[in-house]
Amino acid sequence: MNGPDPLLKLVADSGPLCRCCDLEDSAFCAGLSPEGLRRLRSIRGNLTCEAQETVFREGDNAENIYSVVEGCIKLSKLLSDGRRQVIGFLFPGDFFGFSPSGAYGYTAEAISPSTLCRFSEQRMKALLATTPELEQRLRTRLVMELAFAQEQMLLLGRMSAREKISHFLLMLSRRAVARQDPPSPIAVPMSRLDMADYLGLTIETVSRTLTTMKKDGLIALPSPGIVDLLDRDGLHRIADGRDGG
């Protein structure tokens, strides 16, 4: 009789968070071998956050890095004039907190009740040196972070409010699909103020534009925090600057 499957044993030994996690295709640990998963789990801790709870602040010592298991995390920076710029929203499977400078370059705050995997940065660096597959996963996540940053630069450029919000909603839809969620309706857990700070708009402009898009049949707002994309082609035309509305 053969012995127990080592992969099944790994799952059985991985603790409640790993056993219940359904992010095997999108999280930082996706695609790792059983041995890679075992090594990663050996340095993993868990963190739960309430809505509006701060994970870390800009300038804090970068002692840990994180992966989102449940919920939504907001990243923001303070500008020199005291204004806040939201620079990103993170969802299950997203990875954040790695800082080559030794200090966090932004503040991370939970938008909704959230569960995170937490890893000591020092222990993670030591693990990366001996686990090439994990190092490759980290490189992939950092490339994704760069892509998100470039996308925000586009949003803050010479787009109209209608173009920015269409692009933003389609971006959330693409990220939902990457998590194997439906493309619509999409969860939009951030407040309209957070959306405004991310898109470089005022809260009044965000609210007015969403209302107009609803009247035009582009979207529906069935409940707080949910947006149904009724006319994806129309949203794409607007986001690409091909609509005169």
Rank of each mutant, 00 (worst) to 15 (best):
G97N: 10
G36R: 01
D231T: 05
Y198E: 02
K214W: 04
M159E: 03
F98E: 08
L116V: 05
A129D: 13
V11P: 00
D240R: 11
P34M: 07
P16W: 06
E121D: 09
D60Y: 12
T140C: 07
I219N: 01
G102R: 01
K74S: 12
Y66Q: 08
D60F: 11
Q122Y: 09
A220R: 07
S33W: 05
S42G: 03
S42D: 06
S207C: 03
G3V: 07
V227M: 06
L199K: 05
E50T: 07
A149I: 09
S160G: 10
R19W: 08
C72M: 11
L172M: 11
S76D: 15
E70L: 11
D240G: 05
R179I: 00
S33F: 08
L17Y: 00
T48Q: 11
F148V: 00
A161Q: 06
I165M: 08
R192I: 09
E109A: 04
M153F: 10
F56P: 14
P182R: 11
A176S: 00
P224M: 03
L128F: 09
A187Y: 10
D13N: 11
R208P: 14
E163H: 05
S67I: 06
L138F: 13
P34G: 11
E58Y: 10
S184Y: 10
L230C: 13
C29T: 06
G59K: 13
Q152T: 02
I111H: 07
R208L: 12
P189H: 13
R242D: 13
S14L: 09
L23D: 12
A126K: 15
R141M: 15
R192F: 14
S114P: 04
C29F: 15
V86W: 02
P224H: 10
S112L: 13
D216V: 00
L218D: 03
P182L: 12
M195Y: 07
I186H: 05
E109W: 01
R175K: 08
A178S: 10
P100K: 01
M171E: 09
E58N: 09
L127I: 03
L146A: 14
S26W: 06
S67W: 02
Y198R: 04
A176H: 12
R141H: 15
S14M: 04
C21I: 01
L138M: 14
L210P: 02
K77N: 08
P16V: 01
A176F: 07
F168L: 02
L47F: 08
H167R: 04
I165W: 03
G45Y: 10
L201N: 15
K125P: 06
I165Y: 05
A129Q: 11
S112C: 09
V143A: 09
D233T: 12
A149P: 04
I43R: 05
P92E: 02
M171Q: 14
T140I: 03
A110Q: 02
K9N: 10
I73C: 01
S184W: 12
T131W: 04
G15P: 04
R174Q: 15
S14E: 04
G93A: 03
R192V: 11
G45F: 14
E50D: 15
L155K: 07
F28Y: 14
Y66T: 04
Y198H: 05
L235G: 09
N61E: 14
